[in-house]
Write a protein that binds this DNA or RNA. Structure first.
Lengths: 197, 197, 197, 197
DNA sequence: AATGAATGAGCGTTCATTCAT
DNA sequence: GATGAATGAACGCTCATTCAT
């Protein structure tokens, strides 16, 4: 069964936004890639920004779905093992959603509306992760917890970008990469509650 | 001595790229901000992309300069304290270079050339940090070390963006933030060599 | 019997042309108003201009019909009373054909073809009125008579537009309005054959 | 001395709006007529509607200026002679502003903004004429006076359009035409206060 | 060096019209 | 007859870049 035109356009747009960025992707490129006429695009989307928003939202939704129902807390694993699983799973998610990684890099905030979408996405993902992690570090204030989560997201995101995209690796050494991320900051002596000097 | 016109243009462009992003910043905005005529711009830069590249390079250079001569390795501090200092210093650097943080977020890769610059920048900064960190984790392969460093950069960058820009904080709680970053992954038991399950 | 589709389209088009003008009325509006599919329109009309022409012609035809069989000449009324009746009847006709007034105002000459239709209409209406009025002013040349008639049409049309459309009045003060139109130029001394100075 | 570019554009636009109407006049026509590049147009005008508004306003202003300082009331002429002069002068004004007559016919209300301009124009011109005519017919209510004035405007406008544009006449028979307009309604017996039957 | 008016290629978008079903 | 998805030419407008002064 042929995918419907709307899906074809979304796929074409995704590919081009990823490859060229929002501003360098012209409607003429998208319709050529999709094999349709210029006007046909506007039967399915209000504007260029409209497809972009929809493409982004769809990608982010996939990430949220992949991340959300993580039944780790009830899995009987040790805290450390749970943490390991969260990071590993996140890397796999980014691997399977490489386009969104590229798009986030290529289009920081192509337009104010787009910036809102990204902000909301991070906000949601942060909230999910805060709930997941809170039990592990009950002594953190909400503010500290949020900072912690954002920093973790940044860590995983950058590592995934570097590993899967810049270096072009696959999932072969996934456990090694996860292990490295687990050991961030740990090489220097472990949780001795080291105070700021 | 009055700053010469070239510097004025760079400053104007930096301000506007930060505020509006590359594609929303028009030459007409830059020259108005700089108080010069439209044509004058082209006496100093060969194109819009040219000035963007130069602005980016200048910002990244400042970060490299601020980061490079960190004589931490020879400071007699404990490993942990050195690590703390590196992270803290990096946060301060980002605080003082908020524009570059914003620009990196707003203009992922405005054009292929720009993407190269960012790649090269991360490459350099990574190399500097690898040298700094290598002694602490001599058992890491170069590949692992590189992944480690990129992940750390991602962590600090995201934390800085969230803290200084999204939340608009200043340096008041810098030590708290540094402490949070230090404890990433540590809350769950420390370096017990935990293998992947 | 339900009106056939052609009539429905004409009615929809009339309504929209009146409301929005020719250029702001899109085929998509007309078919939505008519409750038919886009393609169906072209089974009944060969183009947008075609339907406009037909709408206009139909309106003008109604006016001609309403005006033509005015059996005033044979009614035994005084000349003055006949004149009064002609003007009054014309105002009533315009009142009942407000759409055409609006369309004439909104679409002076949407296209060259349309302009011809309007010209022909005025030509016909002029000819009808010339026959009606000629007996009253037998000393007029044909050229003078034509000028007289056109001027009268302009007078009635503008008064009707102003009164019924801009001001939104109904027929309540119809006699007052007719009276005012009757007295145009009369306030200053009547038919003394006043020569040009 | 060459007229400046803005004036050239206005002249070109006036000519084309008159000839083709607002919607059929494309920016590409205007710039070709003016002998400038497409982009140059936008140095002088914000948009197509902007030039149209300015062209219209300029024409209407000329008419108002020509009409306003009519020092008839103080001229020592008889009422009838004054009336004659007002009509004659109006015809001459329309003769010298034929373009506006054509544009008014061709672009009833090309857009809502344009409609406002026309409405305001008629409102102003009406007000000027009401002041001029009020002394002649002191027994009229303001409402009657306004209707009277609008009807007169319609009469003169239509006559001018027919005579100068459709028929292409010049001013040769101006006095004859004025005379005809003066006698509208008069042929039938004069101001005998004839009531509606 | 400095200007700023002028350029024109190229964009996103619209919409009257067509045609396979 | 009826449909409505598809078309693509054409539009108004933008803006990086040029060049005569």
């Amino acid at each position: 069964m042929a995918p419907d035109k709307r899906e074809i356009i979304i796929a074409s747009a995704l590919k081009l936004f990823e490859e060229l960025g929002y501003h360098n992707t012209k409607i003429s490129h998208i319709v050529k890639e999709a094999g349709i006429a210029q006007g046909t695009f506007y039967l399915y989307f209000k504007s260029k920004e409209d497809v972009f928003r929809i493409v982004i939202e769809q990608c982010l939704e996939e990430i949220l779905v992949a991340l959300s129902p993580e039944p780790l807390a009830a899995s009987g694993l040790s805290e450390r093992e749970q943490h390991y699983q969260v990071i590993r799973a996140s890397l796999v998610i980014y691997y399977h959603n490489k386009p969104i990684l590229r798009i986030l890099k290529r289009n920081g905030a192509a337009s104010p509306e787009i910036e809102d979408i990204a902000t909301q996405f991070y906000s949601k993902i942060c909230s999910v992760l805060m709930d997941l992690i809170r039990p592990f570090i009950p002594h953190y204030s909400e503010e500290e917890l949020e900072a912690h989560v954002y920093a973790t997201i940044g860590m995983v995101e950058m590592a995934a970008y570097q590993w899967f995209i810049s270096k072009g690796h696959g999932l072969e050494k996934l456990d090694m990469l996860t292990q490295v991320l687990m050991e961030i900051n740990m090489e220097c002596g472990g949780p001795d509650g080291g105070d700021a000097p």
